[in-house]
Design a protein around this nucleic acid. Sequence first.
DNA 1: CAAGCCCATAGATACGACGTATTCAAGAGT
DNA 2: ACTCTTGAATACGTCGTATCTATGGGCTTG
Lengths: 275, 275
Amino acid sequence: MTSQDQGRGGGEDETRGQGRGRDQDRGRGQDQGQGQGQLDRGQEREQQGLHARLLASLGPAITGGAYPPGTVLRTDELERRFEVSRTVVREVVRVLESMHLVESRRRVGVTVLPTEHWNVYDPQVIRWRLAGADRPRQLRSLTVLRSAIEPVAAGLAARLATADQCAELTQHALGMVATSRGQQLEGYLVHDMAFHRVILRASGNEMFARLGDVVAEVLTGRTEHHVMFTDPDPAAVTLHVQVAEAVRTGDAPRAERLTREITTGAMAELDILAP
Amino acid sequence: MTSQDQGRGGGEDETRGQGRGRDQDRGRGQDQGQGQGQLDRGQEREQQGLHARLLASLGPAITGGAYPPGTVLRTDELERRFEVSRTVVREVVRVLESMHLVESRRRVGVTVLPTEHWNVYDPQVIRWRLAGADRPRQLRSLTVLRSAIEPVAAGLAARLATADQCAELTQHALGMVATSRGQQLEGYLVHDMAFHRVILRASGNEMFARLGDVVAEVLTGRTEHHVMFTDPDPAAVTLHVQVAEAVRTGDAPRAERLTREITTGAMAELDILAP
DNA sequence: CAAGCCCATAGATACGACGTATTCAAGAGT
DNA sequence: ACTCTTGAATACGTCGTATCTATGGGCTTG
């Protein structure tokens, strides 16, 4: 009869013996089935899936240079090394492939692509790179990007910002003033990030708006990179207040020029040659 | 009718009411060879995989608004509708999820996310949107982005461009001059794209360099959008030549200013308010 | 030594089974 | 009557296996 047992409950038959060899290394089905997983999840960081876990392992490893371009990863090797099934590996590889971090070819394996193919605007990739070894380089690239985007965004915001957005802007600028002295860098950072996020959103351009997260990461990185002890530059604080004012009054050229001063200052902090 | 049959594959008691799609479980492997005729995949020979085919169907459909945000797609429905297996659907959903186009949640399905979540810098997404209904809107967004990026990139290029890059730049500028008259728009477009690509690459910033493809798509879209009959604006051609010259002589402010004139002109063509 | 054929290999695709989280609703408790 | 708990239904998550296909290397042959 062709039908083996469709009801799983009964037979623990010996035909799985072959599979045992592979299965015994983890006992994955049963292991997860027990309450074990809950304890595990309770203590450690929140891993909401094997897929996310593997991606969080492979992504930073690749962007961090642990696998130089040209390195070939085989799926079964990844399968064993990370103790996940083929399905998980394949889905993760597909995602990495969509980021152009790797290329999967038959008979060859999963090849790590050179840096110039990477989709460097993917927030995930940005986060991985900022967390990795070439963080300084990434920070410079992104700061230069900011210097191009934000002044234009501020100019547009001056024309298009709603009353609510102007109010938000002023509020965060005042918040920056209030936290600019006395080792309140955390509070300052929050207002700084919110300020730039509002500017980008108020520009009315979705491409600009999407950079809010990137700018936030850059500001965070900058803060925890070189200061933590010195208060923010008073000139920068003043500039933010003035930008808020320029946006509120609809003075686009002024908003753009002032924001350009802000980003120029940000570049100077990183020793980037200013135009 | 409570649970009387857990088995999905064997059960014929779909309480669906519509018999459509029942043929799917019959001979999947052979079905590909036959070419059922339901889908005209005989025409598009570029499909080197079911994964790519499904992605090319779903991606544009989502970005094009065929599935408004909040729409729930169930995996088994996609399975039937596109006549592919669960594996393929899952991998495609993972990729779409990595682009933040959809979100997959247990017990609810694959939900289309609102536009503001989309990873609008993903070249794939950009291509889909440019091919879709909101092409004009997308073209405007990208042109504004260009207006922010390219002047800064040109300024950096004036400082950092190698001799080879300067030569390339001059060559393409001359190519634009040569093709600027007499219905040679295709050749003009090639040089135009190459010119801006060299500028972005010569800026030395990887974030800028990666926008070469985007700019190329914008230029292509613009050309085939509103002209095809009129020759390029002579002023724009002159500006490109001057930019090449400014970069060659290392005059960063001039290169930046001239490029800003170019992008301002590009925005004017799309009736975008210029600063 | 070079060119072409053969086959081992590893990814691509498929499919069914089971696990698990989440949602909805019914029922118990206050 | 309202709320909280708990159970069931459901649709995604994960896994193991089987088969297919393309490809690269090795072998054979001229």
